[in-house]
Amino acid sequence: MKRIHFVTAVMILILAWSVVGYAQDFAHIEALLDRIEQRSSFENTDFSALVNMIVEDPEKGIEKIVVRQFSRNNGEKFLLLIQEPVANKGQGHLRDGDSLWMYDPSSRKFAHTSLKENFQDSDARNSDFVVESYATSYEIEGYEEGKLGNFAVYIVSLAAQSDNASVPYSKIWITKDTELVLKVEEYSLNRRLMRTNLYPKYAKVGDNLIPVQMIFIDELVAGQKTQMSLSEVSTNDIPDHVFTKAYVERVNR
């Protein structure tokens, strides 16, 4: 009888140890995601950049889009002003908290849009101009260690905590040593791969490390991808009036 009690106690201990061990592993990844988020966050400074996008559409061919990006509070407020192509010049995407509008200068009207919508005809989404918060918007489903090219990486599987997250599920490749996100796979609700994002180049801006080159590959439409690169990056203060509808209306008049 005593023997049975002893075996049961040992088993409970093993189980408890494995549960704690598992939780600790996740805590380590959670801390990693937190650090990544903090490092790419522009909470106390404004952010602006010139964004060049090359959209490869198998039907329409190659199109260049140039956008001036103004951002505040990690994208809680942002303005994306289209500079090229000329036909779309003056169009603007303005975000203020939960509201996101698209301005069309030809009709002089603002239309509601969402962060989940694609930006112009590219493979980038409006949410790609906001600092993705993997630590708060997603929960960790699991992780494994692996290699991406020559880099030793953590491959972390994430599930959205709410419907507000950009995608229901994603898998991210994070370098172990430099803690940089190199690749993201985005999955639909029924876990079909929809988009692969590659972040081959990072740059230091102040204390932050941000990707300055991104490649978005549409995994549903064969041959469709978009390359995005950032230049003229600045953290100088941006006047408040930039994040207003009035400014969007008059800036390209």
Binding site: S114, K116, D163, N164, S188, L189, M194
Partner: peptide, 8 residues
Amino acid sequence: TITGQQNV
């Protein structure tokens, strides 16, 4: 989806 998530 009805709650705004993407699905295929």
